[in-house]
Design a binder for these strands. Structure first.
Lengths: 331, 331
DNA sequence: CGCAAATACTGGAACGTTCCAGACTCCATC
DNA sequence: GATGGAGTCTGGAACGTTCCAGTATTTGCG
């Protein structure tokens, strides 16, 4: 039967012939037990298949050592971030609790779930909640916002220098000889405003104000496809796109309409998500530094919990350009 | 400060002038309190911003009411399944705990995490562990395997009739007039063997044994692209593909090479993931019945926990054909 | 009117840990 | 030979709940 009561500290203690306090020490690897008894205790624990009960442990110690992560399950870039967060959490002594935003489960519900689990801090990936709601949340527990730009008194923000990212893209294209460069934007998605601004400033810097052309897009393949169709009548020689997902939609429509990429039009994406790296897509893109961002997000959350003094609330990670096969000189 | 001790049952009790037992009753919506006091207690709780501490609650009641879900974070179809699971869990009184498999965090690690959280049962999405490992796991707690075919004494399996699915695809294409139909398979991915078999049997049933052609593929866009390139030299008039993700890779390569879909080649995918539904992809595909599968998976897990007698261990959900824009009569 | 049954409520033990104060042994030091 | 400080180890309280066995109080019915 699987119902036989699972072993507890007391069981291990009686089997090893010591007190439960001692077993507790040994299990936590604290000093205060002789090597010999330590040995005996560990043997007993192994024999009984003992695993500490995290609930009881956390109840008593008053901490959960749990960091809540809210992410969009449909979002490939969030997948990359979650991957990074797991790796970054590995040696910290904290665990991650995931809570997904789905089409039928909104952000506030995802957050509520994590609060009930007694997470000590929250890491939100590109949250869509209003600033006011985030600020209120941050009064309860440390909140780190990843990949979105927000200003709030208690909010920590880790994000990419999105304006710089778009400048990199434009500079790259200009260096190749382009000047008719359009931008397919992300609407009200997190980061979209900055990227739009970066595009506009870079074009201005190169003296191409007259060529500035912003096409409404969005963050899905579908939005990209729609935007690309809108471009068909009057093609630029290059396009910078809000993100990789949207860019694949653009590529797809171009392919279908016999438009050569990068021959006729160059395309630059954003995120360097696993999508862009696929050999047949092979998308030139702006890479967000996922390892750095996730490492910082975690470090920040932990620092807040342990009252390590931090000066800056906002940390801006530089992006870099990844040149692949969708950008070339104009023909 | 956010450190002010959070309110407990006792706090609410003293404020409402009752015992903590009574407050406990009220919070759990159990009978045994007069409407009037119930009111008073709820008011007091609200005033103190009281939220029950799940750890203590679970410690005492000996249950966690937590169902662990292991999923692949890079996998779009898993995203659909997780979405379904959340919806299905809504009214059950159980909560989901997600644990992701990432390129750097393997399945056994994901499972270990959930066990520590005291999940009562596990739902594994297309698990890659060996049957032996799954069987061993199922000795400890109820395990429901979703979207993979396994045989094990204590394992519950909910899966799509994958062979039937491929038969539907082939029948559809044959009805359109195709006979040179190839299959791009999924290698050793969960479900691949059944789909391959379904393809072969359907072709045989139509008397097209001579046309059977199985091309090695895989489950990513990249695998599909590679397989499509292998087909270029000797095109069939139609292709059935292991899954939608792989199919988009196929479509992409066809597009790039000026091959009309569905004019020259028809393409049928598998999963009806959100990918297939995108307007510009518009992929004819075999839909797995995600709502039914997730509902059943949840029901099964809960039934095991509550000792509801169940006869069948394996439940096979019928798939159905979704006709979109990538299939048409051969030209 | 009296007695059982229902309703409303209380007190305290338990869940499996961690934490604290103390107890015992052993050995070096004065 | 007492003193004291490591080094080990123990017992019991506490964490915030739920559960159980009760105690009042009210109600229903012959």
């Amino acid at each position: 039967m699987r119902d036989e009561r699972r072993a507890t500290l007391t069981d291990v203690a009686t089997r090893a012939g010591v007190s439960k306090s001692l077993v507790s020490l040994v299990m936590r690897d604290e000093p205060g037990a002789s090597p010999e008894t330590r040995r005996r205790v560990l043997d007993a624990a192994a024999a009984l298949g003992y695993h500490p009960d995290s609930r009881a442990r956390l109840l008593r110690s008053g901490r959960s050592r749990l960091l809540g992560v809210v992410f969009g399950i449909q979002h490939p870039f969030h997948a990359d971030l979650v991957t990074g967060l797991y790796s970054a959490a590995r040696e910290t002594g904290y665990e991650l609790a995931l809570s997904a935003v789905t089409p039928e489960r909104d952000e506030s519900e995802a957050i509520r779930g994590l609060l009930q689990d007694r997470c000590e801090a929250l890491i939100l990936l590109g949250p869509e909640s209003r600033t006011a709601a985030l600020t209120r949340l941050a009064e309860r527990l440390p909140v780190v916002v990843l990949a979105r730009s927000v200003r709030g008194p208690d909010l920590d923000v880790i994000r990419t220098a999105d304006a710089t990212g778009l400048a990199l893209a434009v500079d790259h294209l200009v260096a190749l000889g382009h000047r008719r460069i359009a931008h397919i934007d992300g609407g009200r998605a997190p980061g979209a405003a900055d990227r739009r601004r970066g595009y506009r400033q870079a074009m201005h810097r190169h003296g191409f104000d007259a060529e500035i052309r912003i096409v409404p897009g969005g963050l899905t393949e579908e939005d990209g496809a729609r935007a690309a169709e809108a471009l068909l009548g009057d093609l630029p020689t290059a396009v910078t796109v809000f993100n990789d997902r949207c860019a694949t939609g653009v590529l797809d429509v171009f392919n279908r309409n016999g438009i050569q990429v990068p021959g006729t039009v160059s395309v630059v994406g954003y995120d360097d998500s696993s999508l862009a790296r696929l050999a047949h897509i092979n998308l030139t893109t702006i890479a967000q530094d996922v390892p750095a961002m996730t490492r910082q997000a975690l470090a920040r959350a932990i620092a807040r919990l342990e009252d390590t003094p931090i000066t800056a609330r906002e940390s801006i990670v530089p992006p870099h350009l990844v040149i692949r096969g969708t950008s070339a000189p104009p023909s």
